[in-house]
Design a protein around this nucleic acid. Structure first.
Length: 257
DNA sequence: ATGGTGGACGATCCA
């Protein structure tokens, strides 16, 4: 089972690229973030025609998440206990034996800002939900745009980004707490080196110069991690015409469905 | 030089 994550930065603009990527990469599950459209405007027919079932939690202009899968998606959750939030950032679904939790983590703008406080609050509620999900499911994947670079090797210039948003000790601390519940970074199970990124700023020719951060993560619980056979980041879509600023990350597990 | 680009939307907000 191949599971992928991609912040598409507007599904309206990126739908053709999503369909192209599905065809060439053949994931069993694709979690997408920042669809930036309402449920009424979700392109269900196009995605079904590509051979995928889909569930979504949309919002006008900002945020919005969806999960595409070759098999039925069940037990859908879009709101979690203790988090009254109009922003559509969470979508949990079960596909075959695997529970999938798709997250569009709050960006946070700047360390110490009101949005930063919201980010930490949001993460603490999500952490509690993940703890509960771990106790209820044999196989759990938590994936998405985490808006946190886990370590310095995930950042093109760690000194420039030291204690900045996406890299601060507080953000890394909460991510560490979440992973300590029993989740591992699938990418790091297979690749220990630096210069592997999933997001490059549109500005300052970030992609051309590989000035990126690895902030799109696929975490798996220990039982599922034992079945992991590969993980990676597909840089190709970031080089396409009119790209998202993120590129897809993926992980493959030795389970048939 | 406090910039740059991109999406949504229709003046700014968000990333």
């Amino acid at each position: 089972m191949k599971i992928a994550s991609w912040n598409v930065n507007s599904l309206k603009v990126r739908l053709p690229q999503v369909l192209d990527w599905l065809k060439q990469s053949e994931p069993d599950v694709l979690a997408i973030q920042e669809i930036k459209l309402t449920d009424e405007n979700f392109p269900v027919a196009e995605i079904k025609a590509a051979g995928y079932e889909v569930v979504y939690s949309g919002q006008k202009t900002y945020n919005g998440v969806a999960v595409l899968a070759r098999q039925p998606l069940t037990d859908i959750v879009t709101d979690i206990p203790g988090l009254e939030d109009p922003q559509r950032r969470i979508l949990a679904a079960t596909i075959g034996p695997v529970r999938v939790l798709n997250l569009y983590v709050v960006n946070g703008q700047e360390v110490g800002s009101e949005k930063f406080a919201y980010k930490l609050r949001w993460l603490s509620k999500v952490k509690a939900y993940i703890q509960k999900q771990l106790s209820e499911h044999n196989y759990l994947v938590v994936l998405g745009d985490f808006n946190i670079a886990p370590e310095d090797r995930d950042v093109y210039d760690p000194e420039l980004w030291r204690e900045k948003i996406l890299c601060s000790s507080q953000e890394r601390g909460v991510l560490g707490e979440i992973m300590a519940l029993g989740l591992k970074d699938t990418f790091r199970y297979f690749e220990s080196g630096g210069e592997h990124y999933s997001w490059w700023d549109y500005r300052a020719a970030g992609f051309r110069r590989n000035l990126g951060l690895r902030i799109d993560l696929i975490l798996a619980n220990d039982a599922l991690m034992r079945l992991a056979i590969a993980a990676g980041i597909d840089r190709e879509p970031r080089g396409w015409e009119r790209p998202s600023d993120h590129t897809p990350a993926w992980a493959e597990f030795n389970i048939s469905n």
